[in-house]
């Protein structure tokens, strides 16, 4: 990643934090920096600018982990496994952050930190899957075998995830904004009533957090490559 991009994303996200927290929320917006109220969400709507991009980055991270896993199985190059683990570990971190930020928001919107809403359940499953993924990895010593088996596991787990989309709504209706049980927004989250200026900040945040994720990811991969290199040197000596 280029240095200018790192500086750019730092400045970019600083601007988003300022906008997300400090822009006033009023009934009737007068100037460009005033967000309108969203009924039922009020000031809590600011969470959209931080929680949703983090959840998005989680999905990106896990998808990348799975894709690099598949490439590893085809090419058998251990570097792809390093990339796969790096994305998975960052994905797990982001997933925890998304769960925590979501739960805090849920406490003040739904009345409890955790109530097995379909989205909460699916993020919980993601945590379980990648928890199991790292447990599996720690149980295998041999490098290539570990890479193969964990890639296979992430593929197997990956194909079951779509089933939650069909299964969960039958168990309970959702409260999450954008799901069917929510009167405010029928359809995906993005369709719900966001003012154009808020929508801009939201998308800017989405881009910013994705770039930030790629920066963290590149650091993680490079660190793992160095680690592996050092390990090989000590083994040969």
């Amino acid at each position: 990643m280029k240095t200018w991009l790192k500086i750019a994303v730092s400045v970019w996200l600083t601007g988003i934090i300022i906008a997300g927290i400090a822009f006033p929320m009023v009934k009737v917006p007068q100037t460009w920096y005033e967000f309108p109220f969203i009924p039922g969400l009020e000031e809590k709507a600011r969470n959209i600018i931080f929680h949703v991009p983090i959840s998005w980055a989680t999905v990106v991270a896990f998808a990348m982990s799975m894709i690099y896993g598949i490439i590893y199985l085809r090419k058998k190059d251990i570097d792809y496994d390093l990339r796969s683990v790096s994305s998975a570990s960052l994905g797990l971190l982001l997933c925890i952050l998304a769960t925590v930020t979501g739960a805090i928001w849920a406490k003040f919107n739904w009345g409890s930190f955790w109530n097995w809403d379909p989205r909460q359940t699916s993020i919980f499953i993601l945590l379980l899957i990648y928890g199991a993924y790292f447990v599996l990895r720690s149980a295998i010593d041999e490098e290539e075998r570990r890479a193969t088996l964990s890639s296979v596991y992430s593929i197997i787990a990956g194909v079951t995830v779509p089933f939650f989309i069909f299964v969960m709504p039958r168990i309970m209706s959702g409260l999450h904004p954008g799901s069917l049980g929510d009167e405010q927004g029928k359809g995906p989250v993005l369709e719900f009533k966001m003012a154009p200026n808020m929508l801009m900040v939201f998308f800017a945040s989405l881009i910013g957090f994705t770039v930030l994720y790629f920066w963290m990811y590149s650091l993680k991969v490079r660190q793992m490559r160095i680690e592996r290199h050092v390990q090989q040197i000590t083994e040969t000596h």
Partner: peptide, 26 residues
Amino acid sequence: MYVVLVVVLAIWFGFLGYMFVLDAKI
């Protein structure tokens, strides 16, 4: 609200500093 903003920004700059230092070390 701006007090909160300053606090969050302080943490954010700390995090960014850590990222840049880590990048340079790697």
